[in-house]
Simulated scan of single mutants.
Amino acid sequence: DRFHIIKNFNDKVVSEIRKDEQRRLAEEGSPEAAKLLKNSRYILMSKRSTLVQKDEDARKDKLVSTAGEIFNTPEIKAHGGNEVWYDELLEENKLFFTIDLVKDLLDQAYNSHDEVEMCVRLEEIIDICKATKNSHFIWFARLLYRHLRGIYTFAKYGISTGKLEGINNKIKTERRKGYEYPDDECFSLRLMELSQKAS
């Protein structure tokens, strides 16, 4: 499923490479460069269109979070410079540039409605990942190769487990909130009520 492929790429490739590069820079005596990478996780994971939107929100002084009186939290406005920062990261590091390339190819693959085209895109990603000689990219290449047939059939059927994942998260959240429910029947009724609100 697309959700799990992207999640695996973000968690096992993007995050791990960022940590490795941060350690390398610190060991090479570049603490400032290492510090710059510390808060770059979500920048590296985001699509360029998302970063452009965040910069646009910053120009409009859009609120991200309102001030809270109970916990005395200040209001937070969207901050800009995301796309510029992203471009700087890509220019400075070949692995980050490869991350951007793979993200773009994954997006193209999942937007394809032809199995052959999607398969070609996925095989291209596998070749790029292997060519990096990086252990995290190689792990991702093996993951794609093992599940290749199941992944490219998405182009034909377009079936996703996105709604199922959303329902599962709703159930988990409600279970955490619902310690006061007297029995399973009451919990089930609450879940049915939630599902009707969602639809």
Rank of each mutant, 00 (worst) to 15 (best):
E123V: 12
W139H: 05
S195W: 05
D100H: 11
Y86A: 02
P74Q: 13
N169E: 03
T161P: 07
G150I: 04
D20H: 07
Y179A: 13
L101Q: 05
Q22S: 14
E28Q: 13
G162E: 08
E117D: 12
F187S: 01
K94S: 08
G80T: 03
R190Q: 13
K133S: 11
E117M: 12
S15Y: 03
S160R: 09
T50K: 12
R18P: 03
N8S: 09
K163D: 13
Q196C: 05
G162N: 13
L122V: 04
K197I: 14
S30I: 01
S160N: 11
I5D: 04
V102R: 04
Q108V: 10
F3E: 11
H147V: 03
Y42P: 06
Y145V: 00
E16F: 04
L106I: 14
V52K: 15
D184K: 02
E91N: 08
D11G: 00
F9Q: 02
D20C: 05
N168A: 09
K133L: 13
L191Q: 08
E165Y: 10
E165Q: 13
I138P: 01
A131V: 01
M118I: 09
F154Y: 15
Y152I: 00
K12F: 08
E185Q: 10
E32W: 02
L106S: 12
I6T: 01
L90Q: 05
D20W: 04
N10I: 00
N10L: 00
K103R: 14
N72W: 07
Q22R: 15
I159W: 09
S49N: 08
I125L: 10
I171V: 15
P31H: 07
R176A: 05
F97C: 05
E88M: 07
E83M: 14
D183R: 02
S112N: 09
Q53S: 13
Y181D: 12
A78Q: 12
D104I: 01
H147A: 06
K177I: 15
F9N: 02
D61M: 09
K94I: 04
D57Q: 15
L36Q: 09
G29T: 09
F154I: 07
E16S: 03
M192C: 08
